[in-house]
């Protein structure tokens, strides 16, 4: 019988913190436009692989952490991340049988919609300057790095036994 007890929560949190580091690591100004949403990608990976453990509430708290990390309105990313986690919970079985290109397309749409939600909140509090289509750059970058991130996290998951 397979051992199904949850394990490796620490490793899971560490991968999220590393993603947080990538979110704030200093880059040239133009590179900021194509910075992938690392934390969302890592969250989505864990939702897809451990749908019974990582879900909407994880999404909410990771999003809240992201809010404070980036100095956004509290709840701005919390809203989007919990919705993103919810959508992935509904679609995790389909995502597993999708081809690489289909997966990347889903990630592109997901990161795009979550960022758009965050943009709407930011717009409502009057802290936006650039038009919303600028979201496309980071969404596209997220879709491009999705497979490598997946491969890396897969290795981490097997190496440190996260389940």
């Amino acid at each position: 019988m397979r051992d199904d007890r949850p394990a490796g929560t620490g490793v899971l949190v560490v991968t999220l913190l590393l993603a947080a580091l990538l979110e704030v690591i200093p880059l040239p100004e133009t590179a900021n436009w194509v910075r992938p949403e690392w934390m969302l990608l890592v969250l989505v990976y864990w939702v897809l692989t451990l749908p019974r453990r990582v879900g909407v509430l994880w999404g909410f708290f990771v999003g809240l952490y992201m809010d404070v990390l980036t100095g956004a309105t509290l709840g701005q990313w919390g809203l989007g991340f919990s919705l993103g986690a919810f959508i992935m919970l509904l679609a995790y079985k389909r995502m597993r049988v999708f081809t690489v290109l289909q997966q990347c397309a889903v990630i592109f749409l997901l990161v795009g919609s979550v960022s758009l939600l965050a943009y709407l909140v930011q717009e409502a509090v009057g802290r936006t300057l650039y038009p919303p289509y600028t979201i496309l750059y980071s969404s596209l970058a997220s879709a491009v790095v999705w497979r490598p991130v997946c491969a890396l996290l897969r290795w981490v998951q097997l190496r440190f036994i996260v389940r």
Partner: peptide, 13 residues
């Protein structure tokens, strides 16, 4: 859970 998270997020905002 989504409903709880959404309500919490809106309260936080």
């Amino acid at each position: 859970r989504l409903l709880i998270a959404l309500v919490l997020a809106i309260i936080a905002m």
